[in-house]
Design a protein around this nucleic acid. Structure first.
Length: 325
DNA sequence: GGATGTAA
DNA sequence: TTACATCCA
């Protein structure tokens, strides 16, 4: 994705996990994918592969990843993507091509028996198959973790929920949460150590921009939905927007153009989101059913999930997560 | 994706 | 300051 350049614009600071509390609207796709790739990389495939060859590494990832929220008094709400935007077609296509390249390399690595390369490439060729989507939802259901279905971008829906006050933070690694108007975004929720807090208001104040101008600057730089203008990076974008006011004035002054700039603008300004969701943050996980689902029904190695289930039991079942609601 | 080095 | 290549995870 081309918009890591937004990192140079955003006001981001590390925040002690102990200072975080409340509800995090998590971009589920993003979160699952991170755990899926790390699980595949560090776990023997026997541990999560069924007799017919179906891989459900996501189940291990979920059981290992959830305790991180619970142990810090944070309730995750998993926001799943709806249909992908047409505008994102280019991005999806280039990822597909990238994945095919890795798959070819994987073939070669397998022929050569290069175990290190195989593990690396396997983690890069993962995708969220329908089995993974379905079993993830089912396991989250058994663990009573709230799930929200976004009409389009999960990121946009999560930002919307924070703006409405139904969640305190968006949880995502993507910087475009800022463009969707997320007041606070937590990053690095899947890594060790403390998360990063990305602050929209501070970002706008820092550069003396409006939300609309930030979006326009991002369009000049390039987003998941458009190419951006060659030669414009974060510095130039802000300078130009400040000088000329908005996207069209900048383009006119430079004699440049961007493809469907108006649609990308619209997509960030008024994203397709819904108010039709509800969730309960007093979690009552059915750990026995969850264990049976993961280890019984899907045959995942108990060793891989035992500690994760224990941690969930210790933090949710025994102490209760709902004390602050 | 992140970090880093280099060329323009 | 930006683009691009490369290594790591």
């Amino acid at each position: 994705m081309g918009n890591a350049a937004l990192r140079d614009i955003a006001v981001i600071e590390e925040i002690p996990f102990d200072d975080v509390s409340g509800i995090v609207a998590v971009d589920a796709h993003n979160w699952l994918y991170r755990y899926l790739t790390t699980t595949v990389k560090w776990t023997s495939s026997d541990a999560y592969t069924t007799a017919d060859g179906t891989e459900v590494a996501n189940l291990i990832g979920i059981v290992q990843g959830l305790p991180k929220f619970f142990e810090h008094d944070v309730t995750p709400v998993m926001v799943f993507d709806g249909g992908p935007s047409e505008l994102k077609a280019d991005e999806i296509e280039s990822r597909r091509e990238q994945r095919e390249t890795y798959e070819e390399q994987l073939e070669i690595a397998r022929e050569e028996g290069d175990a290190v390369a195989i593990a690396q490439l396997e983690s890069r060729t993962q995708r969220l198959t329908s089995t993974i989507q379905e079993t993830s939802r089912e396991l989250l259901g058994l663990l009573d973790v709230p799930v929200v279905e976004a009409p389009a971008e999960g990121e946009a829906q999560a930002a919307h929920m924070v703006r409405r006050g139904d969640a305190d933070y968006v949880g995502s690694e993507d910087y475009d949460a800022l463009l969707f108007g997320a007041p606070y975004t937590l990053r690095q929720l899947t890594s060790k150590g403390d998360p990063e807090l990305m602050d929209l208001e501070a970002t706008l104040a820092n550069h003396d921009l409006t939300q609309e101008q930030l979006i326009d600057a991002a369009i000049l730089i390039g987003t998941d939905f458009n190419e951006g203008v060659s030669g414009i990076g974060p510095k130039t974008a802000i300078k130009e927007i400040t000088e000329h006011g908005d996207l069209w004035s900048v383009l006119e002054a430079r004699g440049d153009s961007v493809e469907h700039g108006d649609r990308v603008r619209q997509l960030f300004r008024e994203p397709n989101v819904t108010d039709e969701y509800e969730f309960d943050t007093a979690l009552e996980p059915d750990l026995e059913a969850a264990r049976e689902f993961v280890c019984g029904e899907w045959g995942v190695d108990e060793d891989e999930v035992a500690r994760g289930f224990e941690r969930i039991d210790e933090t949710v079942t025994q102490t209760g997560l709902d004390r602050w609601t």
